[in-house]
Simulated assay, not measured.
Amino acid sequence: MEAGIVGLPNVGKSTLFNALTCSQSAQSANYPFCTIEPNEGIVSVPDGRLEIIASFVNPERILPAALKLVDIAGIVKGASEGEGLGNKFLSHIREVDAIIQVVRCFEDDDITHVSGKVDPVNDIDIIETELMLADMQMLDNAIGKAQRTARSGDADAKKRVAVIEKCQAHLDKEEPLRKLELDKEEAKIVNGYGMLTAKPVLYVANVDENDLTGEGPLVQQLREFAEKTGADVVPVCAKLESEIAELDQADRTEMLESVGLEEPALAVLARAIYHTLGLQSYFTAGVKEVRAWTIPVGATGPQAAGVIHTDFEKGFIRVEVYSLEALQEHEKESAIRAAGKLRIEGKEYVMQDGDICHFLFNK
């Protein structure tokens, strides 16, 4: 799972990235394009259920799910035509699964805003416009080759031309491709081009320390906009999170409590990213390890097994499943089985978030 952090210059992207990845890099200067190459970090996805499972199983190690974050340089108006660092950074966005757009929702005369004023919806419009223009360029470049191949009678190429034209017509209405209804085959073609505006978006409202829950008017503007597009909004104070990231665990907990927060931003963001991407977790538990695995909502037992190893999916026989609640009540798997709360599920079983599983398969 990979998410790209984007936004206008000086909105707090790199500060947030460094906080989330516990980076100790020097504080970035207050000017655009301080990120010269996209920084990448692999972070563990916080999930308190892992510790609870481990308290009963006593494994040698605990392995949480992983999230790859990519900090991409600030995008400015005209980026699709090469302004700022232009297409170089737009191309990095094509490789991620979801876009996290950091939107400035605080006033500070000491931090220059590239547009001269703080306006969350206008900031989003600038980024979205540049991504749409970049997609238009990509489709303009792709359609000629597809049309030439289609003239030879190639059925796949004809389908490709139809999909490209459908996307072009949608973008001409100044609408991102994530709003375009596509069937499975069409979506596969669009995904093959790495269309920027087809990717799901999560908005992070970068707030100041006096508005940690995002109740201020700037965040409300952002929420109203996001609600119309079906996107989630997570308020985060990047400055505070960067300060918390520099502390040891005990001091982090104390500081969070002092400002009225129950958990750091990474936990909140991780859940929001899962929701944005339509993902959930299941667990495997044994003496060697307790581990979280990431799967799409609606995945079947064999598909979930395939995340561990493709052979597990091919040779899937059945999955033995129990819940965290059953583990807490009965404490041991043998007791769960004896109580009749360990279920045997077949190939049609649709996985549920938090399932604890053993897969049986033919080698």
Results as ranks from 00 to 15, higher is better:
residue 74 G to V: 05
residue 157 A to Q: 14
residue 320 E to V: 04
residue 52 I to V: 10
residue 53 I to V: 07
residue 230 G to V: 11
residue 271 R to I: 13
residue 89 F to S: 05
residue 154 D to Y: 05
residue 62 I to T: 03
residue 101 Q to L: 14
residue 45 V to C: 13
residue 330 H to Q: 11
residue 362 N to E: 00
residue 260 G to P: 05
residue 261 L to V: 07
residue 213 T to Y: 12
residue 20 L to G: 08
residue 49 R to M: 02
residue 209 E to A: 14
residue 361 F to I: 00
residue 357 C to I: 06
residue 285 A to P: 02
residue 292 A to L: 11
residue 10 N to C: 09
residue 200 P to A: 10
residue 238 A to V: 10
residue 222 L to N: 02
residue 15 T to K: 13
residue 325 E to C: 02
residue 66 A to H: 15
residue 338 A to C: 13
residue 276 T to K: 07
residue 188 K to E: 00
residue 180 L to T: 01
residue 144 G to T: 13
residue 78 G to Y: 11
residue 4 G to I: 14
residue 80 S to E: 11
residue 142 A to I: 03
residue 332 K to L: 04
residue 134 A to G: 06
residue 148 R to G: 12
residue 255 M to N: 14
residue 90 L to R: 07
residue 325 E to M: 00
residue 322 Y to T: 02
residue 14 S to Q: 06
residue 164 I to Q: 06
residue 47 D to W: 01
residue 195 M to V: 04
residue 112 T to D: 14
residue 334 S to M: 08
residue 91 S to G: 13
residue 335 A to T: 04
residue 340 G to D: 01
residue 197 T to K: 09
residue 145 K to H: 12
residue 341 K to P: 01
residue 218 L to R: 02
residue 359 F to T: 05
residue 317 I to T: 05
residue 300 T to M: 09
residue 298 G to Q: 10
residue 291 R to I: 09
residue 314 K to P: 04
residue 222 L to T: 08
residue 319 V to H: 03
residue 266 L to S: 01
residue 239 K to R: 13
residue 119 D to E: 07
residue 240 L to W: 10
residue 3 A to L: 12
residue 363 K to M: 13
residue 323 S to T: 04
residue 338 A to I: 11
residue 192 G to S: 09
residue 102 V to Y: 13
residue 228 K to F: 05
residue 135 D to I: 08
residue 11 V to W: 07
residue 40 E to A: 15
residue 293 W to D: 08
residue 223 R to Q: 11
residue 202 L to V: 03
residue 96 V to D: 04
residue 167 C to N: 00
residue 83 E to A: 15
residue 73 A to T: 12
residue 305 A to P: 12
residue 303 Q to M: 15
residue 193 Y to A: 02
residue 169 A to W: 14
